[in-house]
Simulated assay, not measured.
Amino acid sequence: MSDVSSSAIELSYPLNRSPVVHTRNTEEMRHAMINFYGAQAFSAAAEGFEGFGSFVNLDATGFGFCRYAAPAVASFPETDFARLQIALGGSARTSSGASAVDVDQDCMGVSTAGMPSRLEFGAGYEQMVIRFSNAKLMATLEAMLGVRPRGTLVFVPSTRLDHHGARALRDFGMFLAQNVDQEQAPLPPLMLRELEHALMVSFLSVVRHNFSNQLDRDAPDTAPDYVRVAEEYVAASWNRSITITDLAAVTNVGVRSLFKAFQKHRGYSPMAFAKAVRLNKAREMLMQGDPSRSVTSVAFACGFSNLGHFAHDYRQKHGELPSETLARAR
């Protein structure tokens, strides 16, 4: 979709080998923004307008570049992805919910999935946008926390480049964008998945959100000794169902105090941790593909007496049924 000479597209824009639109016609740009990028509305100053947009969609992420020679505004409805805006030139303003932030080369913009947003682009604005599948982010967050997070993922709407790790996140994102838009052979699928996963981990680690405090617990010695005693006991007792009374007896601490300490220092309950340990052990056993093992025997070996509950909890944590894990392993 273009009314600009093809030679103009050969400019050194990021993702220029994956163009979506390059035009001086505001209506054509509006059509592309609504029908391809999913915008709800788009408008731009007609005088001096020129817009360029490109996009590469991967499994868990999507990379898009856009440039506007004249001021423009795009509104997006609720989406199933989080958005990271990396300004490469000029400035913009992003509004979502009750917040409005300026996006420029010193500050990246962040939009939370499920929240409508309004993006106002200044003249000469250029940006790289990285979309992160919210479902993939939640699965990655669960792996990082060790338990399923409660509630939705909500991001702080901006991250300054002088924030710890922010420049590395930006550079990593630009590196991956460059390597998915090249004339050479595509990256090996396994390598691409690992790079996407690393980018999501970086995004969740650098950009602040409502689970950041749980991820920040990189100093386990700040937790009381009885929390670590309980964790060690759970890890050593993966083959049986543990009750909160068992943990209270082992730690010599009241049930209420134990719950409060786990929530404060770990971000989850002691019983959620115990279940996660047993589910991880079950997956480890199933992945071995031992012909003598069945889903039932593994469930019982890991302390699960109700097979229906085991299958449900396993699927919630690992994204597939235990029978599917065993079949793949064989």
Rank of each mutant, 00 (worst) to 15 (best):
D171R: 08
M174Y: 03
M174D: 06
M174T: 07
F175S: 12
F175V: 06
L176C: 10
L176Q: 00
A177Y: 05
N179F: 08
V180D: 00
D181S: 15
P186C: 07
P186E: 05
P188F: 13
R193C: 10
L199K: 01
L204M: 08
L204C: 05
S205E: 11
V207A: 06
R208G: 09
R208N: 13
H209E: 14
H209R: 04
N210G: 13
L215S: 07
R217Q: 15
A219D: 06
D225I: 15
Y226A: 12
V227K: 00
R228Y: 09
V229C: 14
Y233F: 12
A235F: 15
A236H: 11
N239T: 11
I242F: 07
T243S: 05
T243R: 06
I244Q: 05
A248V: 08
A248E: 09
A249S: 12
V250I: 10
N252K: 15
V253L: 09
V255I: 11
V255P: 08
R256L: 13
K264Y: 15
H265M: 12
R266K: 13
A272L: 07
F273L: 13
A276C: 11
V277E: 01
R278W: 02
A282W: 01
E284V: 03
L286C: 09
G289C: 07
P291E: 01
S294C: 12
V295T: 01
T296W: 02
S297A: 14
V298L: 07
A299R: 00
G303E: 01
L307R: 08
G308Q: 06
